[in-house]
Structure formats: C-alpha cells, structure tokens
Design a binder for these strands. Structure first.
Lengths: 259, 259
DNA sequence: TCGTGTGAAGTAATTCACAGCC
DNA sequence: GGCTGTGAATTACTTCACACGA
C-alpha cells in the first residue's frame, strides 16, 4: 500500500468501521459507479468483489459494518449502494482542496480529472515561486505562498495536498495546519509531524518501487540457485553479527546510495 | 496507504519477512540515508523510529526479521544498516523501468528525481500518441507503443509503470506482462488483472483523498451533535433495510457521482 | 434455492515487557 | 545503565462455513 496514516493509531475504529474496510470503500464505489453507468440494477457480492479485485467474503464483511444493504438471494441494489458508500465516505458534500507546490507533480495533480469527479474541488494552487504567481495551471491561477492562510480560511478548506520538495514539506505542513487544515495528502518524500487531530496520508513513488524491487529480487533469486559467496559487505560494526538462518544471498558491494 | 498488492496472497511471507515490514524498510532506509549524509555513526532504535515515524518496538521487531544488526547498549551502525537494508530490498543492483503513458502524470514521474537516486533507472518512456514519438521528456525521447515489446526485451526490463488513462491500462498491462514484465506500479484508476507471478502495486490519488474525506467527515460529525433527521435517502430496494445501531448521520440526497 | 450477513476460526501485525549483552 | 532482540500477549484483519430470509 502506497500509503499510511500518521496520527490516530490504526487501532482506532472509526465509528466502528475498521480502517482496512474504509480503505476499500473507494474501490467498491468505483466498481459500483461503473455498473451504475451501464445501468446494471443489482449486483452480487461475488460479481462486485471480482470487479473490485477482492474476494467476496471480505466484501460482505466490509458491507456488514455499514449495515445490511443487500437482499438475500438477490444481491445489492447498485444505485442504493453507491449512495450509501458515498455518504459513508463523506462524498455527498464537496471538499475544497488546496495543492501546494506546483511543479511537475503538482501540475499533474491539478490536471487530474479523478479529483473533480468525486466530490473534490481544487480551490487553489499555491507555489512559493513568485514567477509562477498568476500563471494558470489547469485553468486555475497559481497563487503565492504568502496568501496561503487567507486562501484556506476564505475557502473553508480542510484538506491540503503537499507536492513540494521534501525540504519545504514540513514547513508548509505547519502553515497548513496553523491555518486550519486537518487532513493532508503528502507527496513529498519525508515524514511529516503533525499535532493530534490532523490526519496525514502519504504517497511515495519511490517507496512503491522499492517494495516491487524487493519482490522482484526474490523472484530472480528463486531461479538462480545458491550463488557463490562474494566478499562480505561493508565492515560490520564491532559486534557479533548474527544472521537469520533463512537469510538471503549476499550482495556484492555496499554501494551507499544518495538521498 | 495508497496502495495494495494484487496477486500472491498477503499472507505469503517473503523469505520470512512480513509484508508489513517490507513496506517499512524503504522508510527506514530514507531516514538512515539522511543520517548517513550528516555522518552520524550510530543510531538507537528510538531515534531512528522517530525519524521514520514509527514506534521503536515495531522498528526493532522489523529489524529482527533481517538479522541481529545492532549492538546492545549502543544502537545500530548507520552505514552498515543502510547497506543491509539496501541489499534486502534489492537496491544494490539497478533496475531499469519503463513508464507507459506520458501525459501529465507520466511526465512528472519521468522527471521525478527520487527514482534515479535509489537504484531505479528510467530505461524508456512509451506513449500511444504518434505525435509524442521522438519528443524528449526529462531528456529521454518518448517512443511509440509499437516498440513496447522490443524495448522491454532489449533492455531486460522487469518493472513497468502504468500512467495511462484507465481505459487503456489493462491492455497495456497485458502487453507488458507478455513482454516479460513481472512487477507493475499502476497509477491508472482501475483494477488490473494479472497472472500469478506478477506483482501489482497501485497508487490512486483519488482513493487517498476519499479516505481522508471519511476521517474529515468524522471529525466534523463529532462537533455537530445529533442533528435532526432529514428526509431519508434514495429509495431503498424492496427489502428490509437494517442499519447498525451506531451508524452515522443521514445525508440529504443521493447525488450519484460521475465516473 | 440462492446469496447475504455474521459468529467462529484462523492468520497476520502490533505492542508489551524483560532477559541478555555491551 | 542502556538498548537490543524476542517470546508472549494483544489486537486487527481475513477467511470459513452456515443459518437465515427473500
């Protein structure tokens, strides 16, 4: 999962709905919306689960936390379920969001159609570069960071997206929080620290690739058998280094990587 | 968490390392790299955990799956740990990746520095639009989809990034897999189906925002107490609809949302 | 009869708490 | 004395399997 919460221990069930379930509701919603467009009236847990890429037991259990919205022997009413999930997710109102940091990524986010179509409205684009100020991106003029507090309070924004370089992210985060933002989606490759009551989710492209590389390496390792010992890596610290019995092939050279 | 695996049940412990631990290793690595740049020689689990945004018990447990790389009473040797985690993640080799779909997002990804700096090399950019062919993005000329198979086999690419519109994603995915790709990072808002042995991770911007909206709504709901009943929503299907005792405030109107 | 809804069972992840080593 | 490493306890999540209602 490209993501993770920060505050509020994952253990806290939000209104009794497990966090893992909440994370899947948008998936179900997307599948249901597609069915709705094709005017499919009802759907079984099996069909919907398959469209959402999960198994049907999980889906039924997930829905059971919301209430009993299906009909035994029949399935779920698509339109009704779309509404119930939308309401549960808070998508029956629209949420103004601000995007801070209008570089390549910020601009891509501003242009991303998936926001507007799901109850999110880009209320403002903010960048620290004065040269950007006034330039329209995705039809919205970029405003300077100086205006940040005013923009947020004037528009009643509670969700902020950080797409700045890592070095500025914490500072931007603090200004957002001070200005009243209580939910942050962070694309900067850095850990944000926020006070209690503020939610942070992060999306880190390089972390996702690293996780893939881990599994990729494993696949490769299965084909190539033992592999002869190469010179052991960087000098261990002055300590007895034990290794798990099942630990993998030794690599070759330390190769410390840049930031 | 912006993400999730697809095949290979999450239950499968890769070489004994829990999936949840693997997902945190890149986080530790990033924190360690920062310490390394500041020439900090050793770090305690407490300090490192705080820098990575997790608690120290979790961090120590995570490291215990890799081996015993610390020194009791002292902490962990930064350089050594950087190497060990890099090796575990497969980052001591570099991984060529292809990015398919060079729109706003694809271009942003191509320009993203975090890839190159961590062992990933953008081997090629691929787009279906003939008008894009030859145009350089991030210094790399875009190639046409026709070349996809050749590019992958010529460069021995095993990791692919899909940044196409949702409608083309599955088809692109199938071509990638047929050409030998075994790990996919999917930015298209769609569920990809892949054969066994292929890993998929997804990043969906709109899903992340929806999860934030859920929690945001909850916060708002805590302030506003009971709230008078509004007219009940969309006509329920012909069935007795039960609701969980603790279910939330009723919204107002169905408001079916577009795709 | 069919498919939902859900207790119960099973599995994974987290946290506790302390023995062991420096 | 301080901090790692790890079994044990806890909590969260998933899957099973079947009663129940349409």
């Amino acid at each position: 999962m490209a993501t993770g919460r920060t505050h509020r221990p994952a253990t806290t069930r939000s209104r009794g709905i497990p966090e893992a379930t909440v994370a899947r509701l948008p998936l179900y919603l997307r599948a249901l919306t597609a069915l709705s467009e094709r005017s499919v009236p009802t759907v079984s847990s099996e069909e919907l689960a398959s469209a959402a890429g999960v198994n049907s037991a999980k889906l039924r259990k997930d829905f059971s936390y919301l209430g009993s919205y299906g009909t035994r022997g029949v399935g779920y009413d698509v339109e009704y379920l779309v509404y119930q999930i939308s309401r549960e997710l808070g998508l029956t109102q629209d949420w103004p969001v601000v995007i801070v940091g209008i570089g390549n990524l910020g601009a891509a986010l501003a242009n991303y159609g998936g926001f507007a179509s799901r109850g999110f409205r880009v209320a403002a684009l903010i960048d620290a570069d004065p040269a950007m100020a006034g330039k329209p991106v995705a039809g919205i003029p970029v405003q300077h960071t100086d205006e940040l507090e005013k923009i947020i309070s004037d528009n009643g924004v509670s969700i902020g997206v950080i797409a700045t370089p890592a070095g500025s992210a914490q500072q931007v985060c603090e200004r957002l929080v001070a200005a009243g933002i209580t939910s942050i989606l962070n694309f900067a490759p850095t850990v944000l620290s926020v006070p209690d009551g503020v939610d942070v989710r992060k999306v880190d492209l390089s972390i996702e690739l690293q996780i893939l590389a881990f599994h990729e390496q494993r696949k490769a390792g299965e084909e190539v058998p033992p592999e002869e010992e190469t010179a052991p890596p960087a000098a261990p610290p002055a300590a007895t280094v034990t290794k798990r019995p099942d630990s993998g092939p030794d690599g070759d050279v330390p190769a410390v990587m840049p930031a």
